[in-house]
Design a protein around this nucleic acid. Structure first.
Length: 265
DNA sequence: AAAACTGTCAACCGCCTTGCA
DNA sequence: CTGCAAGGCGGTTGACAGTTT
């Protein structure tokens, strides 16, 4: 027995929205708002659409603050670095968290852009840590696209984009908000800058998660914690768990892991 | 010029989460 | 605590536009 559909599919229009439908939805929402009920909205607005479809159309297209058009290099950098810092394999990964850092962009926009452009660019090898093949349009400090290896030093698995702290610091992240799980999407919690070999040992996403969730790292002392981490080059990893560079004391103070065999210098 | 191929992105699907009775 | 309805989200699809052959 399957789940009941959210609307009567047979009596609902599907496919691309017409200008008239857009107008009807826009006018209704500007006058009445959602009323806290998207399901009932299409009937009230005189639309033969599913409520979910109306919601999506509004959020992804009709909202007045939506930014249409191509993504800038700076937006690309932000997406890539946040994708890396949050880690797509994290349970709490959300495109909306990334989109929230890009005014006027929706999660659908960001997801599409990642899937159609950024991911392919990465996989094509155009974006490598190899400094010779870096897109010169990207600020020097962000010339950090690359392949990095985790445990497997022979692997060519493309490592996520990593952005230099200095570049990240040029952005204003003061508007960052905690997501529903109180995870903080750490912008630029990564610094490859002095690394010259592909044999990286990096701290894992789990490490960073524990960093976030520790009492040591609270929103209030974010700037303090971060200024400390800044000098200590924390690496994020989306590949395999390895001996972390940083550990935590019982009192959740972070310290260098003496067993980490390849600390960034 | 036309067919085949490729890229883009709006929209849909269905699962999971949340809020409420 | 439980069940249901609605919201939210990531993954995927498919139509269309642009490019290549």
């Amino acid at each position: 027995m399957g789940r009941a559909p959210c609307c009567d599919k047979a009596n609902v229009k599907r496919g691309p929205w017409s200008p008239d439908e857009d107008d009807a939805l826009r006018n209704y929402l500007q006058k009445h708002g959602t009323g806290g009920n998207w399901i009932a909205l299409p009937r009230k607005a005189g639309l033969k659409r599913c409520g979910k479809s109306c919601r999506l159309r509004w959020l992804n297209y009709l909202r007045p603050d939506i930014k249409h058009g191509g993504f800038t290099d700076e937006e690309d950098n932000i997406i890539c670095s946040l994708y890396n810092s949050i880690g797509s394999r994290q349970v709490n990964f959300k495109w909306s968290v990334i989109a929230a850092q890009l005014p006027g962009r929706t999660d659908n926009d960001v997801k599409n852009h990642w899937n159609t452009k950024l991911k392919k660019r990465l996989l094509s090898g155009k974006t490598r840590l190899d400094q010779n093949s870096i897109d010169s349009s990207v600020p020097v400090e962000a010339e950090t696209l690359g392949y990095l290896n985790g445990n497997d030093t022979t692997s060519t698995t493309p490592f996520s984009y990593m952005a230099d702290m200095k570049h990240q610091q040029n952005h204003d992240y003061s508007g960052l908000v905690l997501d529903q799980t109180d995870q903080f999407p750490l912008p630029g919690l990564m610094d490859y800058s002095t690394t010259t070999s592909n044999n990286y040992s990096v701290s894992s996403s789990q490490d960073v998660s524990s960093f976030f969730s520790s009492s040591f790292f609270s929103l209030e002392d974010f700037s303090t914690a971060w200024s400390g981490a800044e000098d200590q080059r924390i690496f994020l990893d989306q590949l395999d768990f390895q001996a972390p560079h940083y550990l935590f004391t019982d009192s959740n103070q972070m310290y260098m892991n003496p067993n980490s065999n390849s600390h960034p210098k």
